[in-house]
Structure formats: structure tokens, C-alpha cells
Computed example of a mutant assay.
Amino acid sequence: MRIGVPTEVKNRETRVALTPEGARRLVAAGHDVVVQEGAGAGSFLTDDAYRAAGARIGSRDDAWGAALVLKVKEPVPEEYALLSDNLLFTFLHLAANEPLARALIAAGTTAVSYDTVQEDDGSLPILAPMSAIAGALAVIEGGHHLLSPYGGRGVLLGGAPGVAGARVVVIGAGVAGTAALHQAVVAGADAVVLDLDAARLDAAAQRYGDRVRAVASSPDAIETELADADLVIGAVLVPGRPAPMVVPHRLVERMRPGSVLVDIAIDQGGCFEDSRPTTHDDPVYVVAGSLMYAVANMPGAVGATATAALAHAAAGYVDALAARGRSALENLPALGRGLNVDAGTLRCRAVAQAHPHLPSLPPLREAAGR
């Protein structure tokens, strides 16, 4: 099969969907791999390294014209004209992106989304490492923007001798939230985590003891915790669906001036009422005296690490698609659950419910647990 790897064009997106090691593996299996010139530069992977692995270096059209296209981030409007009736494997987040859903339908693309590839146990094996990276970065970026030169309260995450650390409130104790909580604890912050799942809260309490306060999530509990927060991290995810809104504007109005809110769920529409996507070049905006950070490709800040993690997580699924094409979606339940668009119709129940006016058919595979 011919496999194409385009260069990412989203703002400061430094990741690439395939490493030279992955290219070598695919070429050894008999596939033709074409990598757009400079695709790996953001992760310090050179064209020469891909050539040495047996891949060809080509143009944008060469990469997009392959039977299987491997990307990292969802196609942006300037790429819609490049869509075709081939296989596309990337992050899509279609529940929050109707224009892209329409473009994929119109092109007849068979689009499989990393974020809805789901194993039988309910795990999200490709999304998970990116969520963990985003969670850790949420604390790093939040702590950075708490500094006075960047508009923050002038609060150090770990405090100082005789001075308490910043109050960090993490909403959601899934993969991203757990990573954020760990980063906050390591930084010496006064950490609070909220979740609806008692087992997740118990796990946090057992791991960190009195270094973390675990609170059952509710609108009242969120309101109470945000009142004294310096940094709030929204890490609420429902696979494939728009993120639930857990922080209304009225709560932001009551927060301390110079506090920071980081919305990890922005790819799925965001979990703060005031959230709107930002970029690495212009990451924050002010709402009621607080800074909102909602960069839609946070792991792009650590391209070398994130590319390696993504390539490792996706490798088996990439190999299956390369070897079997669309039939891999029938044979592997996890990949079948990742199918979002096929032959001009939506094939993911959560995405179809988000866009009920678009053509849809039942999923190839139901989400785990249904």
C-alpha cells in the first residue's frame, strides 16, 4: 500500500504521524511510504533519516494522494481541498467540528480518528499518551502564566519557605487529569481533584495521601473550590462527544484576579463556558480578570516527546490499516470503533448525535460498554 505522511500545518504543530523507525517497519513489510518534505522537522527528524529508512520524500500532493494518509491533527480548512476517497488516520474531534465533518462526507473519505479508537476494556490507547502529555503541560503552562510578567497573580506553584504553594484545582481524574494532578503535586502545589467517579478519587487519595484533597464533583463543589483557586485545569472527557460544560462564566467572575484556567478539553469544544481555541503563538485571553488558556494542540509544545509517544501507541493500528486497508476496520474492533466517516456518512454514534442533520449510519462497532 502507498502510505503518505503530510507536514502538519496547524499553528506550532511540531508532531509528525510517523517516525523514521515506523517508516522502516512499513517499508520492510512491502509498503511504499512517501513523507512530505520537512514533515519531521518540528520533531528534529530529518528528511535524510526518512530516506535512510527507505521512505521517499515528496510533495504535499504526493503525501495526500496516498491510499492511506497518516496525520496528527485534524485537517484545517486550507487542507479540505486535499481530501479524497482514501483512508485517513488522525485526530478528528468531529463532535466539535461540523465543517470538517461536512468536508469529509463530501470527499468520501474513510476517516478513522485516533481519539475514538477504543479497546474492549474501554481504554483509548492512542488518545491516552497525548492526554497524559497535555495534563502535565497544563500545569507547566498554567504555572508559567501565573507569573506576573505574563499577567498572572505572581504566585509560584511550589510556594516558598513559610508560604503555601498555589492552589491548583483539577476537574476530572481521567488520564489527563491524573497527569495534571501528579505534575501539580511534584511542583509542590496545594492540589485538589474533583471527579464523579469515587474509585478515581480513592485512587488519588491512596497515591498522594494528604498532599491531595479528593472531592466528589458537583456544581456546588466546583463553585466552592474555584473561589480560592490560583490555577484551574479542566480535564473532562466523554469519548467522541462534546465536552460537558463544568465551569460557567459566573464562577470565573468570582475568581481571584490573575488566576489561570487551562481547558484541556478544548478539542472537544471545551469544558469552560468562556473557552475558545487559542494557539501556541497567542495562547491566552482575559475573562473577568482571569487568564484563559485553551491551546488546541498542547502536545505540539513537546514535539519530540509527543511524536515518539504517538508513533508507539499507533504503530499496531497503522500496520493493520497498511496491511488490510478498510478490512482492518472489520477485523479489529478497536479500529472499527475509530471509524468516524465512511462513504459519505457519519459512522460514529457520538458524532452523529452531535450533528443529527448530517447523513449517518449505525457504527461499524459500538463503543465499548454499550
Rank of each mutant, 00 (worst) to 15 (best):
V16I: 13
L18I: 07
L18A: 01
R24G: 09
V27H: 09
H31V: 12
V34A: 11
G40S: 07
G42C: 04
F44Q: 10
F44M: 09
L45I: 02
L45D: 00
D48L: 13
A49N: 02
R51I: 01
R56V: 06
G58N: 02
D62R: 08
A63F: 11
W64Y: 14
G65H: 10
A67K: 10
L68I: 03
A81S: 13
A81P: 01
F91L: 06
A101L: 00
A111D: 10
A111L: 07
Y114E: 04
D115K: 07
D115H: 12
V117H: 03
E119H: 09
D121N: 15
L127F: 15
P129T: 03
P129L: 05
V139C: 09
H145D: 10
Y150H: 15
Y150L: 12
G152W: 08
V155E: 11
G158K: 12
G158R: 06
G162Y: 00
G165L: 12
A166E: 14
A166H: 13
V170P: 01
V170L: 03
G174I: 07
G177K: 10
Q183G: 07
A184C: 10
A187M: 08
A187Y: 10
V192Q: 14
L194M: 13
D195F: 07
R200K: 15
L201P: 09
D202M: 14
Q206N: 14
V212N: 01
R213G: 04
S217R: 05
S218D: 05
E225P: 04
G234E: 13
A235F: 09
P242R: 15
A243W: 11
E253M: 05
G258A: 15
V260W: 11
V260K: 12
L261E: 09
L261N: 07
D267K: 09
Q268K: 04
G269K: 02
G270Q: 10
S275H: 06
H280V: 01
H280K: 01
P283S: 13
V284A: 11
Y285G: 05
V286W: 12
V287Q: 07
V287K: 07
A288Y: 06
M292N: 05
N297I: 05
M298W: 01
A306N: 06
A309F: 02
Y317R: 02
V318Q: 03
A322Q: 01
A328H: 04
L329D: 00
G336S: 06
N340G: 00
V351F: 01
V351S: 00
V351R: 00
V351Q: 00
P359Y: 03
P363D: 04
L364I: 08
R365P: 00
